[in-house]
């Protein structure tokens, strides 16, 4: 509120507060506008890209790159045109998608629980950490797809093999990250816990887990993407009988490119949804603190990067 000094405006606090508020409002407006513009631009580019693909595929007519509209329709026909009672899923979808998702979910939960549990144990004890370190490093260096034949031979094709593959690959990031997170607990806080005579469980719940949580989530995100990869890959091997990956190879052997593309789109959507979900959970659990720390003073692009996190 500038202008001629009147009686009212001579009060310094009012003037300052009003100016500050105005400034704040203006800044927020500008930032919102910038963000909105950015978001709009991104959506626009996405729409443009899809349109270009559609037109190009239509014009060229190559059987290997069908237009997105056809792919979407085919996916709908295959999986989502079912009765309302089944959440619109067709029987094919129920047979194909749900078992795969179930296996992946089970594998992820198992890997997470065991990984966090073992990670805390290993992390708290420097001796245990040193003991397990080489083994963990080796296990992490193994390319996960190479483990699948091992489990095929041991378990034969089917759910046990897939679960084992998923768990044995996805557990390492969680384990290692949790261990390191547990190791890095603030010594001051540990001292306080000792002073307060917290029990081991209390220490775990109130101190270790929360402080390690950002690292644990980093490991979980990596683990989730590994679960998706292993779920698909273990079903790609010849010999599987059902699942998303199987739908992929089956379509490949029939030269059914439309289905191949439909499955790819489904997997992309799945990966995106899962990652967003995990990020949402992380945000809820770790709270705004870590995000503030992350974005403080960072460049805008890196901020977007960290916010989007790892979608894979």
């Amino acid at each position: 509120m500038s202008g001629a000094p009147t009686h009212e405006s001579r009060r310094p606090t009012d003037h300052g507060a009003a100016a500050r508020t105005a400034h704040l409002v203006g800044e927020t407006a500008a930032r919102t506008a910038r963000l909105a513009r950015g978001a709009l631009l991104r959506r626009l580019v996405l729409v443009l890209a899809l349109t270009a693909w559609q037109l190009g595929a239509r014009a060229h007519g190559s059987v290997y790159f069908p237009p997105p509209a056809r792919i979407a329709r085919h996916a709908y026909d295959l999986w989502f045109s079912g009765p309302v009672g089944h959440a619109f899923l067709t029987p094919a979808a129920v047979d194909t998608i749900l078992p795969s998702l179930g296996r992946m979910a089970a594998g992820f939960v198992l890997a997470a629980v065991v990984g966090v549990g073992l990670g805390i144990l290993v992390g708290r004890s420097p001796r245990a950490y040193a003991l397990c370190d080489p083994v963990l490093q080796f296990a992490r260096a193994l390319p996960p797809p190479t483990l699948v034949p091992v489990f095929v031979v041991v378990f034969d094709f089917g759910t046990p093999m897939q679960l084992a593959s998923i768990v044995f690959s996805a557990i390492w990031p969680v384990l290692i990250n949790t261990a390191e997170g547990a190791r890095d607990t603030d010594p001051l806080r540990l001292d306080v816990a000792a002073v307060l005579r917290l029990t081991a469980v209390e220490r775990l719940w109130f101190l270790l887990l929360p402080s390690a949580l950002p690292r644990i989530f980093a490991g979980l995100r990596l683990s989730l993407s590994l679960c998706l990869i292993l779920m698909v890959f273990s079903e790609l091997l010849p010999g599987t009988a059902n699942g998303i990956g199987f739908a992929l190879t089956d379509a490949q052997s029939r030269s059914d490119l439309l289905t191949v593309w439909a499955v790819l789109v489904l997997l992309g959507a799945l990966g995106y949804l899962l990652n967003t979900g995990l990020l949402a959970i992380e945000k809820r659990l770790t709270g705004k603190r870590s995000h503030e720390r992350r974005s403080k003073g960072s460049h805008k692009s890196s901020r977007t990067e960290s916010r989007k996190g790892r979608s894979t």
Binding site: R42, V45, V263, L267
Partner: peptide, 25 residues
Amino acid sequence: DDAVRAVIEFLRPLPSVALIPLVSL
């Protein structure tokens, strides 16, 4: 960067192993 990011975020979640059948064809 902003423009391309949307497309990148679209492609990123897709596991590359899933592309093996398509590229093999």
